[in-house]
């Protein structure tokens, strides 16, 4: 029996690459200076969805909300085997916290067919792990977080193993359900040549527009629009037009989007400064070490 999976993916700045250079003078991070990557655990969520498709058939749709450049993670999803990709991009999404983000995503996911919604457990730029459970609530479906593997899927019921920190649970649930997937769940596959060939040129409408303009730098609007139309038609043949939706397309109520939909606000940001404490130098010699140990015994630090 085939299942439809929707995977939420996110493009994130690679926070592992943070060094002094990307910190601004005011202590905030210059996100633009960091490489943008596919959020690691979202790759595990995508992998799980692709495994379900490989085994049972069905579809995998990758959805992201972000800047137009976030189309890159959608292309990466298509290269790995996703059937369809949706970019939600709109200036009015800016400054959304997890509550507003989950609302916007829910408006998009509601327009899609799904049996299983998958998210990475958390994104490395916020580490909150909140969007998954909040999205499940907004869709009115159950959630299973911290999923480590799928042990069974039949008769519209799935069984998974989830981590509970100091152990595991085996949990069964009727579909539809939302899963958040851990990095230990699987080894994400790499791009497949077959899919790369097919979707090599996958583009969003914004990108198609840019491409048409680049190809006809001196032409008038009408000619560029015609060119864009031509590119769109040719890409459609291989399902390589990435869907691009704004908040109106998904009928989102603007009250719950962006700044007005985000209850959490930043009061202040401080950079972490290492204040030098008073420090004692100890020589790495028998004498130095013996004196140190003696002192620690004297002051009862060690018994």
């Amino acid at each position: 029996m085939p299942y439809n999976c929707v995977v939420l993916v996110k493009q994130v700045p690679d926070t592992k690459q943070i060094s002094g250079k990307v910190m601004k003078d005011d202590g905030t991070v210059n996100r633009a200076a960091l490489p943008a990557i596919f959020n690691p655990e979202d790759l595990n969520a995508l992998e799980l969805a692709l495994q379900i498709k490989d085994k049972f058939g069905g579809t995998v749709t990758a959805v992201t909300m972000g800047l137009p450049t976030a189309a890159e993670v959608l292309r990466q999803s298509l290269f790995r085997g996703a059937d369809d990709a949706v970019l939600i991009t709109d200036r009015r999404c800016a400054a959304s916290d997890t509550l507003a983000t989950s609302y916007i995503l829910s408006c998009a996911v509601k327009t899609l067919k799904y049996d299983i919604v998958l998210c990475g457990r958390q994104a490395i730029d916020g580490d909150t792990a909140q969007v998954g459970p909040q999205l499940a609530e907004k869709l009115g479906i159950p959630q299973i977080s911290y999923v480590e593997n799928l042990s069974d899927l039949k008769d519209n019921r799935l069984t998974v193993r989830r981590s509970i920190g100091n152990g595991h649970q085996i949990v069964r649930c009727k579909l539809p359900v939302l899963l958040t997937v851990l990095d230990t769940a699987n080894e994400p596959r790499v791009n497949a040549a077959k899919h790369m060939m097919k979707h090599k040129k996958a583009l969003t409408p914004i990108e198609i527009q840019q491409k048409a303009r680049a190809e006809l730098p001196d032409a008038d609007e009408a000619a560029v629009a015609a060119k864009a139309q031509e590119i769109t038609e040719s890409l459609s043949k291989t399902h390589s037009v990435v869907k691009q939706w704004n908040l109106d397309d998904i009928k989102a109520d603007l009250t719950w989007c962006g700044v007005s939909g985000s209850p959490t606000k930043v009061n202040r940001i401080q950079s972490v400064v290492l204040a030098a404490k008073e420090i004692r130098d100890v020589e790495p010699t028998e004498q130095g070490i013996t004196d140190l140990i003696h002192e620690l015994i004297q002051d009862n630090t060690i018994a």
Binding site: I18, V29, D127, K265
Partner: peptide, 19 residues
């Protein structure tokens, strides 16, 4: 005042919600 490390621990953010 909800104080937490952010951005991989490189900054400390103070978050509030008053609305």
């Amino acid at each position: 005042l909800q104080i937490r490390p952010a951005f991989g621990g490189n900054i400390i953010a103070t978050i509030i919600n008053y609305e």
